[in-house]
Structure formats: C-alpha cells, structure tokens
Design a protein around this nucleic acid. Structure first.
Lengths: 253, 253
DNA sequence: ACGTATTTGTTCGTATGTATC
DNA sequence: GGATACATACGAACAAATACG
C-alpha cells in the first residue's frame, strides 16, 4: 500500500543499521506482540523475500540470528517455527534461582567463575545496611537450568559476615545452600530492579550468546526473615528464552 | 594483577566487537553495580587511557556513547560525571504512564503516531478475554515526561468496544483520559512482562536514541475494576534513564 | 510407490562499503 | 591518508529433507 511492491515495513538502507538486522528486529517484534505465537510457522524465506524486497541471503541472516538466540527454530523442508513460550521468571518475594532450578527438576548448577574483595561505596553500604568503608566480597558465577537457560551473576556480600561463602558456593553450586551453611536458612527477595545493556565479552562467552545481542540485568536485594539485608545481586540474563513477569495481586476495593 | 601493565579488564581485539564498545559496556557495568554512583566523577580520560591501554580517541568514543544515552554528562574542564539516579518505574497495580507524568508535574503528552486495525490471534484474544477472529484496534504513540524520559507505545484494544479511542487519545494525549471518555473511569495493572531487544529505526527516531542501543520492552495487561481486560500494551523504553522496580510487600510470617 | 513442488541448507561468485590500523 | 580486513548485499545454482496428491 505504501510504496512499490508489497513491502511490509520501511527498510532504511545506508542508515547505519544493516538490513538483515532490521528484519531480525521486525520479526522479533511480530513475535513479541503476538502476531506470530509459539509454535507458529513463519512465512517461508521466499515469502519474506517478497515481503521485504531483499535477497534471500539477507532474510536467512535475520533468521539465523533469531535462531541463535533460541527465538525460532528452522527445520529443513518444513519451515521456520516460533519457539515455545519463553520461561517466565516471576518476581515475588520467593524469587531465587534455586526456584527456577526446581521448576526444571534440575540440580544446583552454579559454577564459580571468579571472586574478589573490594571496598564498599556509600551507596552499596546503605543498601546492604553496613558501615561505610566495609569490605565487600564479590563473586562471579554462572548458573544454568534446563537446556537453554543460563545466567551470569555478580553477588556482593559483607565480607566479614560471610567469609568463605565463595568456597561454599563452589562446592555446592547454590547460594541458597551456601547461605544455609553460613547460618541463613531462609532469605527473601525484598526489591528488584530491571534494566538491560549489551553483554561483556566474558559474559557472552560464558552464556553462549552472541556479543551483539542485548541482555537483561536484574539487580536485587535479598534479606533474611528479620529483613536484614543478606546480599546484593546482579543477574545477567540472555534475552529471548526468558522474560520477567510481575503480577499485581488485585485485591478488589 | 592479570597481565602486562595496569589494564583493568581483558579487552578482546579483533573479536568482532569494537574496543570502544567494550569500554562503554565496562563503564556502564561499573555504574550499574555501584562502583560509580550518581554524581560521581569518572576517572579522567587520561586515567582511563592508562587503565585500558588504548588511545584517547577510543576512550572518548566510549564516553560519547554513554553521554548520548544520558548515563554520563561531560563538563569541559571539570570531568565526566555519572548522571543522577535513573527514574524508577514502579510495577504495581497503579502502574500507568499518567502516574509517571504526575511525578514530573507534567501534562498529558501523548502523541498519536499511527493507528490501524488487524484481526486478533488466538493468543491475543485469550489474553484480552475476547472471541477468536475479533478485530483489534492498534495504536502507536509517543509519550514523554520530564526532559529525557520517553516511551514508544503499542496499544491493542477490542475494536468494537473502544471504537474511536484513537481519536480521543489524539485529542487529549492520555489513555487514562481517553478511556474515561469511553466509559472506563478506572483501570489497573494486572500483569506485566519485561523483556528487551534492539529498537526499530522508527522507534529510535521517535525516541531520539541511537539505533545501536537496546531498549526495554514492557508488555502489560490492564483491567477494569471488575477484572475485565481493557487493553494489552507494549511500551518501548530507552535504556539508561529509567529502570523498573518491583518491591515485594514483605508481610512477615 | 512415485513424482513433483516446497522449503531450508550449502557453495560458489561479485560488488560495495565501512571500520580499523 | 592509504591499505587492508571485514561486513554487507545481491545473484545463481544445487543438495537435502519434507509434504502431498
């Protein structure tokens, strides 16, 4: 209707964004907005060539990138299909990775990548309820669940209170269990912040994702039953197979 | 500690990601994780050159990109400073854009970009509590608040129930007010999903953001007081000046 | 069982622009 | 600024798996 042939959307050539990338985003939007649902077959490469008015290679590049993130799966002779419903990570007071593992009947999978100490800042100390200048213990770890879910995590603890928790985590593969060993049998999610950015190379490598695909960043404060802060976490989460969900408990009137 | 000089992090050269982009992400991580807080001065360009072992142009490119997204601000002769606390968009049952405008003492700012009808799908109909094959009314709009907050929105309505709501919105600039005109005085957030992706060119243009910076995607279902679904929304939100916040109402025991 | 059309996968080649050094 | 490596985009052909009458 707009221009020449039967083009779907206006592609901007020479505008700094590769055409295949625009098509990749466009199809991703159509999936996110529900035009194509889980399990649906996408238009064939030939049809997409007609829709966008580009070479087949260009369409294939877009599809390959979507497949790389697990958003679609291609089957020779049949077509390209939208992947199943992405995993929904519910953000409530019981949000923790061990709960995700439970949903997959998976064992604790944490692998310690690095750990180090650094002096705290005023902000971090305030959030963790500590004095200024206290030393923080920081861990970097990778945790998985199921076939294609993984997160890269940064965890910050009061180094004095949780001395040696990095070893405990390295041994048992779970912060829930490691915290239990250090005297905190129960803890709960107090606050969560959601943001996004591009991944660091080491994060992308550890998560097995392309370096040019964005990641979700969940920052969170976990507290014990007495509301005393336990840890400040940053979870780096590949985009595509997981999304966050927040339900408002609608109590009428 | 790791390698030769005093390099901060391992930079991967020739790995498909420009060096300035890695530095950009690295500084962004340091801000997100609290190493640099709001208002803090970043290390000088000269210091960063030493930290990363690169040319000053490379550092300047990284800082320019951060400034473009409003994450830092450069002051000639003084230094580069971390921007103030990003706006926190709280996700509770009162989450709506008009609440954000209230926080900024801003007037309704919605501008209708496009509107069209399309047949619903099984999934969308289920979410909106409609019959299959019903026609949806879709609007695309831009809404702002304050100096540097903007969102690009897709809204889906039951076309039969909310006929003409695109005109109402175009006139008053607010869906809250437009819905009131169409008989829905109150509505509430029922469920929210958070994801991210790269922006479409038209989204980036409307929001005034670079095309190579990721955006947050908030999908949400708003219902009226009787829990009847009203609309399904997709808000495209530039990354950098806004983040989502979810608080668990911790009722002990 | 067979043949044909469809669809994805692979491999050549060619040209152009852009980023990086 | 010049040179080189890389990414982008297009074109043509063929191979392999699948669906269908």
């Amino acid at each position: 209707m707009d221009q020449a042939s039967s083009e779907k959307t206006a592609l901007r050539r020479g505008g700094g964004v590769a055409v295949w990338r625009q098509i990749e985003t466009d199809i991703e939007v159509d999936i996110q907005t529900g035009l194509y649902g889980p399990g649906d077959r996408l238009p064939s490469e030939h049809e997409l060539v007609g829709l966008y008015g580009v070479n087949r290679h260009t369409v294939r590049m877009a599809l390959a990138k979507l497949a790389e993130r697990g958003i679609v799966t291609a089957h020779k002779g049949r077509g390209v299909f939208v992947a199943g419903e992405p995993f929904e990570y519910r953000l409530d007071r019981n949000a923790k990775w061990s709960e995700v593992e439970k949903r997959f009947d998976a064992r604790p999978s944490g692998r310690l990548v690095d750990s180090y100490r650094r002096p705290s800042t005023a902000r971090l100390s305030r959030m963790l309820g500590l004095g200024e200048g206290v030393e923080l213990l920081v861990t970097e770890s990778v945790r998985t669940a199921g076939a294609d879910l993984a997160t890269y995590g940064y965890h910050m603890f009061d180094a004095a209170r949780f001395t040696g928790i990095e070893q405990s985590f390295a041994e048992c593969g779970s912060f829930t269990q490691a915290l239990a060993r250090h005297g905190t049998a129960e803890f709960f999610r107090a606050s969560t912040w959601i943001d996004c950015r591009m991944p660091r190379p080491r994060e992308a490598a550890a998560l097995g994702i392309p370096v040019d695909a964005p990641v979700l960043v969940m920052t969170y404060l976990d507290c014990d039953a007495t509301r005393r802060p336990i840890l400040l976490g940053h979870a780096i989460i590949p985009q595509g197979r997981l999304r966050f969900r927040i339900d408002s408990d609608i109590d009428p009137a």
